[in-house]
Design a protein around this nucleic acid. Structure first.
Lengths: 178, 178
DNA sequence: TCCGACTATGCAACCAGTTGCAGAACTGTA
DNA sequence: TACAGTTCTGCAACTGGTTGCATAGTCGGA
């Protein structure tokens, strides 16, 4: 049940509507825990039933159905309880590696263009992360605890993308030997 | 539908029973695409219905229900078709990072022991991969195309684990600043 | 000969995530 | 004022993965 807890975290950082949450999510926690808006709405409903959050019509919403969600004490407690739990190790799970292994048996199918494409996508992500880093974690800014942790999390993403870029470079070398 | 194709690959490498497949899977493709035996049996059933594979009672099975599965030409064609397709990028999806971000809001909850534990698990995996590398990809062995690709895939795992180990080392440093 | 461990297969229920679609209000513009 | 595009919410159906359990045969040892 990571999504519920990811949403709790995000709502604690700032109470917001489902839609805003979905968009903000994409730009923060979404970098390492993706969710569609459907999932988010469904989960918000469950969380409200569980008494973790509370919603009311957005005061600035006019006649729209927009609602603002905020975390209740029970939700905060639940988040603390959950965060302290041990999490299962995230294992490598990569469809492209399955395809590459298939290529080793039934190929060669020329995986080079796909490697090039994927390397570029990882490079895009890395660039985006670097931009966030430059903007939000400039060395002269005061490093509060929260900032240090957010930076650390961002570095996980940077490390992940860099690893793949390096690997695709090697893959291209290996696949070129033909 | 990666699992079906992962199984086709594995069955092409060697026809086998569901049970053997499940065990072999754990030691090869399972390193980057996990599946339980339930999933494997269900998928084998579907694949047989689709005409991709064919099964018959294992000749050495005696009175057990053991069946051996082998790939049919249609299955091989399907695998080739699929392997050449573009795959969506595998995004970072890590529950621990969600917990860490929760800790930044409601903490500190002392994530150090969990970091230590996770670092050790990654180190275990890395050691296992290194052992496979030393055993199967010794530099003096003749590097066929298939071997080169299998080695490349293994290196993806090595790179992945190394990346996390380095990151957890940094995380421990950051979390110690308190 | 009984028992526990292991091999081998499978059903049923459940949960999380995905896809496709749609309704309703608001905003800008032709 | 009519329309297109965007914001915001949500239902329904489906797929893939997980969990718990059931069954049935084999093998070795107390």
């Amino acid at each position: 049940m990571s999504l519920a807890h990811a949403l709790l975290t995000s709502l604690l950082e700032q109470p917001s509507s489902g839609y805003d949450l979905a968009r903000r999510f994409d730009k923060s926690i979404g970098h390492f825990w993706q969710a569609t808006h459907q999932q988010i709405y469904r989960e918000l409903g469950r969380m409200e039933k569980a008494g973790w959050i509370h919603s009311e019509p957005d005061p600035e919403a006019g006649r729209t159905r927009k609602r603002t969600y905020a975390v209740l004490p029970a939700g905060r407690d639940e988040l603390m309880r959950w965060a302290a739990e041990a999490a299962p190790l995230t294992e490598l799970r990569d469809e492209f590696l399955v395809r590459l292994r298939a290529d080793a048996v039934v190929g060669p199918l020329d995986m080079v263009p796909e490697c090039v494409r994927r390397r570029a996508l990882h490079a895009d992500k890395l660039r985006a992360y670097r931009a966030i880093e430059a903007r939000d974690f400039a060395p002269e800014a005061e490093p509060t605890r929260r900032r240090r942790i957010h930076h650390l999390i961002l570095k996980a993403g940077i490390q992940y993308e860099q690893g793949w870029i390096a690997w695709y470079d090697e893959a291209l070398q290996v696949l070129a030997q033909e």
